[in-house]
Computed example of a mutant assay.
Amino acid sequence: MKKPFALKRRITQILGGALITAAVSTMLIVPAASAQERDSFKIAWSIYAGWIPWKYVDESGIMKKWADKYGIEVEIVQINDYIESINQYTAGEFDGVVATSMDALSIPSAGGVDTTALIVGDYSNGNDGLVMKGSSDIKDLKGEQVNLVELSVSHYLLARALDSVGMSERDVTVVNTGDADIVAAFSTDGVKNVVTWNPLLADVLEMPSANGVFDSSQIPGHIKDLTIVNTQTLAENPALGKALVGAWFELMAEMSTDSEAGQEARAFLGEASGTDQAGYEAQLAGMKMFWEPKDAIAFISSDQAIEAMDSVREFSYQKGLLGEGASSADFVGISFPGGKTLGDSANIKLRFDPAYMQMAADDAL
């Protein structure tokens, strides 16, 4: 099996007042991508196991087939810098982008861009984890350093791990460490505790005295991978939602089987992500994939999903990720199916709207 490379993902940066102002100003000066009915759209994606299927959707012709069905063109664009792709979406340069739920909330939504989670693709179910060297007791972290990518979902997972044993971040010292350096750092005597994601997590766990003590399977639904789109663009161009959802779930139906088509897709995606079919399937094993739209709808309509998002927004507020103007976690409103909301119902900026996935579930696309 070829060595998987570090799949960069989910590195949340604080959008300070200046950056938010610049993004919003850009959207005011230049007509937003969503300002009219159109027939051409751009969607950005970055490499991670749960998002790289967009590459296959594009290159296999599945996207073109669905776009042609609705008389539109959809350009699928790979952006190597994950956060930059979300910043460009926030500034109106793309109609949609892939993002975790935490980053969807803390960047475009907190920046005032009304955003819809069009596709809920999966959640991390073991792909993110806390590893300790020489101990398997989280309580032994008291007074210790923990290396991770600060303000990423690794930081969030650490907070949940500490909370599980009645501790808090005040009990440890977080050391900001780039994802490219995590594995090498853990191999040194000076680093005893790290939080990271696969395939880096698998590399760390193979080292002597490494103990996986907490992972994302213990907080199911908290780290969600989404395809988000501009809400106004979607409202004015329903063909975009139909084409994207139709193309995505056509591929999911193939990828979930051991058919020749399914294996071909997984082999392609393994090669595209720097590993092989087995390596890619190992990463999929650490995720709860929503192969069918009905499963994604059931999850995002559940109390579990709302409780998970409530935890994420509280963390985001505590870390200043909702911007300087946020006086509480309620600053940004979040809506869910069935009229349920979190936060300010007069300022809904993140919407988990299953309408298009329901069309796919009903075979109505």
Results as ranks from 00 to 15, higher is better:
361 A>W: 13
333 G>L: 03
314 E>N: 10
159 A>D: 13
136 S>I: 02
18 A>L: 11
158 L>W: 10
233 T>K: 09
217 S>E: 14
211 N>W: 08
4 P>R: 11
364 A>G: 03
57 V>M: 11
144 E>Y: 07
36 Q>P: 03
341 T>L: 05
232 Q>K: 15
271 E>D: 11
86 I>E: 03
138 I>F: 08
48 Y>I: 14
267 A>N: 09
262 G>S: 08
114 D>Y: 01
94 F>Q: 06
218 Q>G: 08
228 I>W: 00
101 S>R: 01
11 I>H: 13
28 L>K: 15
177 T>G: 13
193 N>G: 11
261 A>Y: 00
7 L>R: 10
72 I>H: 09
27 M>E: 08
108 P>T: 02
63 M>Q: 09
271 E>L: 05
163 D>R: 08
301 S>N: 11
196 T>E: 11
273 S>D: 12
66 W>H: 15
67 A>T: 05
346 A>N: 14
142 K>L: 02
210 A>P: 06
334 I>V: 14
123 Y>P: 01
53 P>S: 10
247 A>V: 07
44 A>S: 15
268 F>R: 06
284 L>R: 03
294 K>W: 00
254 E>D: 14
118 L>F: 00
81 D>I: 10
268 F>C: 01
346 A>K: 15
343 G>P: 08
125 N>W: 04
160 R>W: 01
164 S>Y: 03
357 M>C: 12
178 G>L: 12
160 R>A: 06
230 N>R: 13
231 T>H: 11
52 I>S: 08
208 P>G: 13
248 W>M: 08
192 K>P: 01
148 L>W: 09
14 I>D: 02
190 G>I: 11
83 I>P: 02
306 I>V: 15
264 E>V: 04
22 A>L: 11
361 A>I: 09
204 V>D: 07
82 Y>T: 12
85 S>F: 09
306 I>E: 07
125 N>H: 10
262 G>A: 05
53 P>R: 10
2 K>T: 11
209 S>V: 07
160 R>H: 05
179 D>P: 01
102 M>C: 01
197 W>E: 07
315 F>K: 07
148 L>G: 05
279 G>T: 10
221 G>I: 12
228 I>Y: 00
111 G>K: 02
124 S>C: 06
63 M>G: 03
52 I>Q: 07
290 F>C: 13
223 I>S: 03
241 G>N: 09
298 A>W: 02
317 Y>W: 14
156 Y>T: 04
338 G>P: 05
205 L>H: 00
282 A>T: 12
43 I>N: 03
70 Y>C: 04
75 E>N: 11
91 A>H: 09
168 S>A: 05
310 D>E: 11
254 E>P: 01
232 Q>R: 13
202 A>F: 04
